[in-house]
Amino acid sequence: MLKRILKYLFYIFILLFQACENLNEPGETEFKNSVILQLQNGNAKQQLYVYHTFPISFSLGDPLFLDGYSNPLANDAAISIIHGDTVYSDFIIEFRDSTKRHKYYTNASNLFIEPNSEYDIKVESNGELIEGHLKTIGDFEIIEVNLEENNAASFSLVNIKWGKADQAKFYSVSVSYKYWFNDPRTGDSVKYSVSGYPFLFDPDTANGENYFSKQLKIRSNADSLEIEINAYDQNSYNYFVEKIQRVGIENAYGYLGSNTSRKVNLYSNKSE
């Protein structure tokens, strides 16, 4: 009887043979690089960042990021931006600041990104080829800027209206204030700048079919101010807002996105 039971139990456990496989190996990181490129319409200087992926045991404060160590900030990348028959591969490395922690590649010569145009990128780094394709965002114009009378002493109201950009997923509006004053130590006239916090403008909340508008509260004590509107594409939205870790590129973390920018300057009466 017992033998018979054991025999049947054995048959049942045979079902499990297929399930005995080891899937508990973390393996390696999916990609060896991260690449970040935001193509800016009309800008001659395009910045592209290439980083190597590095072990979990490092943190940003480690000496890893200083010269002399195995640097994850890739300086071995071969980069191409392709537009039709034209291939831009004249990129150089620049150091962002004196700490030499950050580096980027830039072409300061003739790479003007055109709106509504197709671009491909290729980056070879760390033994891997990263590729991406993008249609750039369309351009737009600022249509109107009106300063409203306001009794409040500390701020004024500005109504700003701008047109739509093709393929724009969101807009951001930011304000930079400039104050001119004389440095009592040197007697020189110097500029002090402060930036307003940008906010996202969701096209779905637009109040017109062909334009968007926003009323801004601005400081009334600045000597001048600059309002900047940026339009961003879907890829930028996915990367920055949706926090998707790979957008528009293959074989690397990061993203390939597009934006276009317009600015308007306002000057205070007191500076006259």
Partner: peptide, 12 residues
């Protein structure tokens, strides 16, 4: 998580 990489963040 077995490694790290650098990403960029938006202003906000």
């Amino acid at each position: 998580a077995i490694g790290k990489y650098i990403k960029h963040e938006y202003y906000r």
